[in-house]
C-alpha cells in the first residue's frame, strides 16, 4: 500500500507530513520515558523481520497481491510508540534506497502505515480484548481491521487530492484490503504466538491483561 509520487497533491502531501511529524515527535518523547535497554535486540529484529516480510508479496486473488504491513505486530511486541518508530524507519529506508513509496508522499505513507495502522490496531486491540476473551481473536481482528482502516485513509487522501472520486476509490481500496487484512491477521497471530512461546511475558501488549488472556 505504498503510495508512489504523483498520486497525492501538494496540500495533502504537506498536511500528512505535518501530521506525521507531530505523531513522531510525540512517540519519541513517550519512548524516552519508558524504553528498556534490554528491548534493543527485540526492536532491531522486529524491524528487520517486518522489512523482509514487506518485500514478500503474497497472492490474494487473481492478479493481485498483498504483503504484511506489520504495524499491529510491532504494536503488540514493543508497544504503540516504539511501533510507530519501527514502521517509520522501514518506510524511510524503502523510499530513500529502493523507490518503494515516493518521497513527496512519504509523510502520507508514514501516516497511513506507521500512525493510523498502529494506533487503530492499538485502540481496537484494547477494546476487543475486553469483548472477545480470546487473545488470538483480538490480535487477528485488530490486525485485520487496522489494515482495512489504513487502506480507507489512503483512499481518503487520494480523493482529497482530486486524483479519483471517493465513491469509486473507497469501496475499491476497502474491498481489496479486506483480503490483505486477512493475511495481516493470520501472520500477526502466528508471529505473536511464536514470540510468546520463545520469550514469554516480554511482549508489551500481550501483558496488557495478565492471566487468562495470554497467547499460548
Amino acid at each position: 500500500m505504498h503510495i508512489p509520487d504523483g498520486f497525492l497533491d501538494l496540500k495533502t502531501c504537506i498536511g500528512t507530513y505535518l501530521g506525521t511529524a507531530g505523531a513522531l515527535k510525540f512517540s519519541l518523547d513517550k519512548l524516552k520515558n519508558n524504553f528498556a535497554e534490554e528491548k534493543i535486540p527485540l526492536l532491531g529484529l522486529l524491524g528487520a523481520f517486518i522489512f523482509a516480510a514487506q518485500m514478500i508479496n503474497l497472492p490474494i486473488a487473481a492478479g493481485t497481491s498483498g504483503h504484511l504491513l506489520g504495524g499491529v505486530l510491532a504494536m503488540l511486541v514493543v508497544g504503540p510508540w516504539a511501533a510507530t518508530i519501527v514502521i517509520t524507519a522501514i518506510l524511510v529506508i524503502q523510499a530513500i534506497f529502493f523507490m518503494d513509496g515516493g518521497i513527496t508522499v512519504l509523510g502520507a505513507n508514514i501516516f497511513n502505515m506507521a500512525v493510523v495502522q498502529v494506533f487503530a490496531g492499538y485502540g481496537l486491540y484494547i477494546v476487543l480484548q475486553r469483548i472477545t476473551k480470546s487473545a488470538k481473536m483480538s490480535v487477528f481482528l485488530a490486525a485485520f481491521l487496522a489494515t482495512v482502516i489504513s487502506a480507507g485513509v489512503a483512499a481518503l487522501e487520494l480523493a482529497i487530492s482530486g486524483t479519483i472520486a471517493l465513491d469509486l476509490v473507497l469501496p475499491a481500496m476497502i474491498g481489496w484490503h479486506l483480503l490483505v487484512g486477512l493475511i495481516e491477521g493470520v501472520i500477526t497471530v502466528l508471529i505473536v504466538s511464536y514470540l510468546e512461546r520463545v520469550i514469554p511475558n516480554r511482549l508489551e501488549l500481550l501483558n496488557y491483561r495478565v492471566g487468562d488472556c495470554g497467547v499460548h
Binding site: M1, H2, N57, S65, G66, A151, A154, M173, V180
Partner: peptide, 13 residues
C-alpha cells in the same frame, strides 16, 4: 518468494 502481481493499491489504480 514474492508474487509479482500488483498490490491492492496498484490494482485499484
Amino acid at each position: 518468494l514474492a508474487s509479482s502481481h500488483p498490490d491492492g493499491l496498484e490494482r485499484v489504480a
